[in-house]
Simulated assay, not measured.
Amino acid sequence: MRLPVPLGGVVPPLCTPLTPDGDVDVRSLGALVEHVLAAGVDAVFALGSSGEAAFLTDDRRRTALRAVVEAVDGRVPVLAGAIDMTTARVQAQARAAAALGADALVVTAPFYAGAHPAETADHFRRVRAGTDLPLIAYDIPPAVHSKLTPAVLLPLVEDGTLAGLKDSSGDLGALRRLLVALRERGLDRTFAVLTGSEPAADAALLAGAHGVVPGLGNVDPAGYVRLYAHARAGRWREATTEQDRLTALFALADTGDPTAMSAGSSALAGFKTALHLLGVIACPATAAHPRGLPEESVGVVRRLLGEAGLL
């Protein structure tokens, strides 16, 4: 499927449901795809951070992406994470994703070994040269230990290397400065800027972002579809009301025991526990914590779902 130019709307970064043994639960993944498509999302993103791509073997990554492509069946574009430590490894992931039917690739800067901005730019150009698929840069400084600045991004937009950006930096000020720079150059009409900040999606959309990539959108995709529709129509009071409800629901990401799991692990466990309680997936296990949340935390997630009108 041809990617819209620029890509916009709501693009959930799909969780990857797992069995208790850690294999990809293909049936539950198909059910999750139907859950988000029924809400009216504009595309889906497989093998991102919410999809636990870093925890999956290459075989499991391919199983997950194949299942998503088959379940979507051409109804919306499928973005695939080609996320790895070095350019050569990313190129291999990109080839595999293209062969499985992805419509676009999502790629971070190189990580493990620190990359100079010039090396990061070269990395994106080399990946793009090896594929016919649109390339979306993924800015997630906590994971890759570098920030994609306008000095790196703008030349890559101007020469056609990049088709978009998924911004998970949490830095709304930097995001706004980038959006201003894109508008000044007339690049905002072709280059998509998507925010990954679930609790502040309305602010990013007000600043000019084209869409939202919310991990919480696995749980409540319809809420983000409503939020996006309000924002695009200029109904900012309604958008703020919806954002406030979603921000309250986002508290489920903080239900894990901070003495036993990281904030990222807690968020994934919260999302999957919510999906399990909603009957979308069969097992709430995450790769890092296969036993899932303790019962007390499950109760908190259940309460939050009820307060959000989902249970």
Rank of each mutant, 00 (worst) to 15 (best):
L7V: 07
L14C: 05
T16C: 12
P17D: 06
D23G: 12
V24P: 01
S28R: 05
S28F: 04
L29R: 00
G30W: 05
G30I: 07
H35N: 08
G40M: 06
D42K: 04
A43I: 00
V44E: 05
A53G: 07
A53W: 10
A53K: 02
A54E: 10
L56M: 03
L56E: 02
D59L: 00
R62E: 13
T63E: 14
T63L: 02
A64W: 00
A64D: 01
A64L: 03
A64F: 00
V68Y: 09
V68F: 10
V68C: 05
V69S: 07
V69D: 09
E70S: 12
A71Y: 02
D73N: 14
G74F: 12
V78F: 06
A80Y: 11
A80H: 11
M85A: 15
M85Y: 14
R89W: 09
V90A: 00
A96R: 14
A97R: 09
A97P: 01
A97H: 03
A98L: 02
G101H: 08
D103A: 03
V106P: 12
V106I: 15
V107N: 03
A113D: 14
T120K: 11
D122N: 13
H123W: 15
R125F: 06
G130L: 00
T131I: 05
D132W: 04
Y138G: 01
I140M: 08
V144W: 07
K147I: 12
K147W: 14
L148V: 01
L153I: 13
V157E: 06
V157G: 06
E158K: 13
E158A: 15
T161Y: 03
A163S: 15
A163V: 00
G164P: 09
S168K: 07
G170Q: 06
G170V: 03
G173C: 01
G173V: 04
A174G: 13
R176Y: 10
R177Y: 00
L179H: 09
L179M: 14
A181Q: 14
A181I: 01
A181S: 13
L182W: 07
E184L: 13
E184A: 15
E184W: 10
R185V: 05
G186P: 08
R189S: 14
V193G: 06
T195P: 06
G196Y: 09
S197T: 08
E198F: 07
E198T: 12
P199K: 05
A200R: 10
A200W: 02
A201E: 11
L205Y: 04
A209C: 03
H210D: 13
G211K: 00
L216V: 07
N218F: 05
G223L: 11
L227M: 04
A229E: 15
H230D: 15
A231C: 15
A233L: 03
R237P: 02
T247L: 05
T247V: 09
A248S: 13
D254Y: 14
T255Y: 04
T255E: 14
A260N: 08
M261I: 08
A263P: 10
G264Y: 14
S265C: 13
A267P: 00
G270N: 11
G270V: 12
F271C: 03
L275A: 00
L275S: 02
L275F: 02
L275H: 01
L278V: 09
G279V: 10
G279W: 04
V280C: 11
P284I: 05
A285D: 06
T286I: 07
A288E: 14
G292D: 08
P294R: 11
E296C: 01
G299R: 15
R303N: 11
L305G: 08
L305M: 10
L305P: 10
A308M: 13
L310W: 10
